[in-house]
Nucleic acid binder design. Structure first.
Lengths: 201, 201
DNA sequence: AACACTAATCAACATCATGTCAATAAAACG
DNA sequence: CGTTTTATTGACATGATGTTGATTAGTGTT
């Protein structure tokens, strides 16, 4: 299937992508130009256009590459676990793998999720989370009648919440382990944030 | 304090802001230029620079204006309600006012929250939600020891969840009333999404 | 109505990033 | 080795930017 890539091509693309990530971190995606990227990469500007249409194309391809790995990792662990004991107090493996996979590429995820003007990546990531949550909820409770809220609302609610917490975790430079984070998310999502329910006297 | 604004100035700024919103909706924020904006507004390009530094400055000022109204509305209803019965099944007024205020300016909120490359607005909105959630949680449970999860995580979790649902609501052209949406958010946040808790046999 | 004042228009300008091209040099491959 | 592919270089037209100075139009004050 995949022809072996000319080493010059692989090297050039990697240098451009590394330069992109660095520059987004330093100056923000909006401010950087194709000139900046090629200069930082030590390449000629014309070389850029041999590989990418424009700045967005470079970003877009970098996004898809990294998200492809994440989807594969999560689908793998979803397929593994057919039944799951929610009373064990243990987080679902898929949650752990989510945080682990992100920590493997934390440099890139941090830049792509926390820097400004990265909506191309964040919206792709949100799509991914929505899909993930929708599948999880469908497994757990396929009957809409037994939901206390509109399913679409609930899906978006949890997808956004998870992505928000992931972003927080990266902003703070991952102060907790993937397992701890997964546990917190499971707990708050199913039990709410309070130990003693303040709504019941 | 505030001198009466020259009607030419007010008119010009309004035309520029209207043109901005229209064009973001039609072509996306990234693609539009100062030329496009002034052309749509029927103004000379030089006039733009009499009022704003660049495209971002125009966007930024439009954001602050609209968010100022939202903050005021929510602070007002926060101040009114000192005690609140969470068992009433009624949503807190602040939640309702949140959705109502957004529905008053739904055209602008929809464009600013759902179009791509609007992270300047979405991150300001997220800050606002974080502040709102942090205050609400502090009132409800000031003691960290009685939280099942890290407070910062919980704050980000709910702020992101709320903003996600608001965005969904605007994407779908507000299919439910503000009161209904507020009720759904209260319910899912405190009780979880399931009528019968599937985690307890 | 005439006045001074401010805002908007217009044409012009230098600057900069873009995307493309043809010619050339360098590296990879068989 | 020679052939093919890739990267470099300098050049070019294009289009948006931000600014300027001179002019016209609108505001509101006396």
């Amino acid at each position: 299937m995949s022809k072996k890539l000319d080493p010059r091509v692989a090297r050039t693309r990697q240098m451009l992508r590394d330069a992109l990530v660095e520059l987004i971190h330093e100056e923000g995606y909006e401010k950087i130009t194709v000139q900046d990227i090629t200069k930082r990469a030590g390449l000629n500007r014309a070389t850029f256009y041999l590989h990418y249409r424009d700045k967005l194309d470079l970003l877009s391809q970098s996004c898809e590459e990294i998200l492809h790995d994440l989807v594969e990792s999560m689908n793998a662990s979803l397929a593994e676990t057919e039944s799951f004991d929610f009373m064990s107090g243990q987080p679902h493996d898929t949650f752990i793998h989510l945080f682990e996979q992100i920590s493997f590429n934390s440099r890139l995820y941090k830049v792509f999720l926390t820097e400004k003007n990265m909506s191309h990546f964040t919206s792709r990531m949100m799509e991914l989370m929505i899909d993930f949550v929708a599948k999880g909820m469908k497994n757990l409770q396929p009957d809409d009648e037994k939901l206390a809220v509109n399913r679409d609302i609930a899906v978006r609610y949890f997808a956004a919440a998870f992505l928000g917490v992931i972003t927080w975790w990266l902003e703070k430079d991952m102060p907790y382990t993937p397992k701890f984070m997964a546990t917190q998310l499971m707990r708050i999502g199913t039990r709410g944030p309070y130990i003693e329910d303040p709504f019941v006297k």
